[in-house]
């Protein structure tokens, strides 16, 4: 019986049924626990929320909250630009470093287990309450101080690079890389893990075949490893952008948090997060479109 049903369905119908069978939990969850609250927060952003003893009431503001955020608030625009430049400038460094680290960790050598363990530690240390408690903490500030020792190394580098007359912007970027090395490394744990799992799923036979053909390590990297990892590069780019936009340390989110409880009110805070979110969404769509042209899927 079951067989007869399957035969009578077209390929297309089977795809739709399969798709629905596997995705219906998400369709329900997304509608109930995301879309619905999301639409409500859009409504809140157009209103002034007044909390009373018996619940809340809304006072219609139109685009007033948005206007206030963009035109009148003292530091919103500045923090907005800061947080976006931070993200975009650290993105290539994080991706580059995590790819590099994953390649190293995938080699066979003594102490590999320990090395992996340490490099994934930021996954544990760089999240939630642990990250939150770091701010304003004495031990953390001390650690930052020693990271600032890099700053002097940066100055020395500045002189050297100045001598070879690289363009100013390139020098600034390189110095930025060195002084922020600690943040880059701490933000890369998840990405290393994703890359490493990807590296492990490339069959060894492909490399053996390449060895027989006499390929160099360099060729093997660019012709086998890199294309096989390309779907995960896309994953990691998307993740890195999202992570730095939603981390508890993000200066703009801290500002929004501040505004919603102590400052101009919840409506304005909602309008601010809506503006921020829209920008990030557009940015991600552009990045996704560009990178997915270069992605290679093993189909």
């Amino acid at each position: 019986m079951a067989k007869r049903i399957r035969v009578s369905l077209s390929y297309r119908q089977r795809q739709i049924i399969g798709g629905l069978v596997f995705t219906f939990p998400f369709i329900i969850g997304f509608t109930l626990f995301f879309l619905y609250p999301f639409i409500q927060s859009i409504i809140f952003s157009l209103n002034e929320l007044e909390l009373g003893a018996s619940g809340y009431s809304l006072v219609w503001q139109g685009l007033g909250n948005y206007r206030y955020a963009l035109l009148e608030h003292a530091s919103f625009n500045e923090r907005f630009v800061d947080s976006i430049t931070d993200t975009l400038s650290s993105l290539p460094m994080v991706i580059g470093f995590s790819l590099f680290a994953a390649t190293i960790l995938n080699q066979k050598f003594k102490g590999r287990g320990i090395a992996r363990m340490i490099l994934f530690l930021p996954v544990i240390l760089g999240s939630g309450v642990v990250l939150k408690m770091q701010t304003g903490d004495w031990a953390y500030i001390m650690a930052q101080d020693s990271a600032n020792a890099n700053y002097f190394a940066g100055n020395a580098l500045n002189d050297i690079l100045g001598m070879i007359r690289l363009p100013e912007s390139v020098i600034e970027y390189l110095i930025d890389v060195i002084t922020s090395s600690q943040e880059i490394i701490q933000a890369s744990g998840v990405q290393i893990l994703i890359f490493l799992a990807g590296l492990q799923s490339i069959p060894g036979s492909v490399y053996e075949a390449a060895d027989v053909e006499g390929a160099t390590t360099w060729e093997k990297f660019w012709l086998i490893t890199f294309p096989s990892l390309s779907p995960l590069i896309l994953t990691n780019v998307v993740y890195t952008v999202i992570d730095s936009f939603t981390t508890t340390r993000n200066p703009l989110l801290l500002l929004i948090e501040d505004v919603s409880f102590t400052g101009a009110g919840f409506g304005v805070a909602m309008a601010m997060s809506m503006l921020y979110f829209l920008f990030v969404a557009v940015l991600l769509i552009i990045v996704y479109a560009i990178i997915s042209r270069f992605v290679f899927y093993n189909v």
Binding site: P37, I242, T246, S273, L284
Partner: peptide, 9 residues
């Protein structure tokens, strides 16, 4: 759903 900061909803 990822891009929306949880603070927002």
């Amino acid at each position: 759903s990822l891009v929306v900061p949880p603070q927002m909803i």
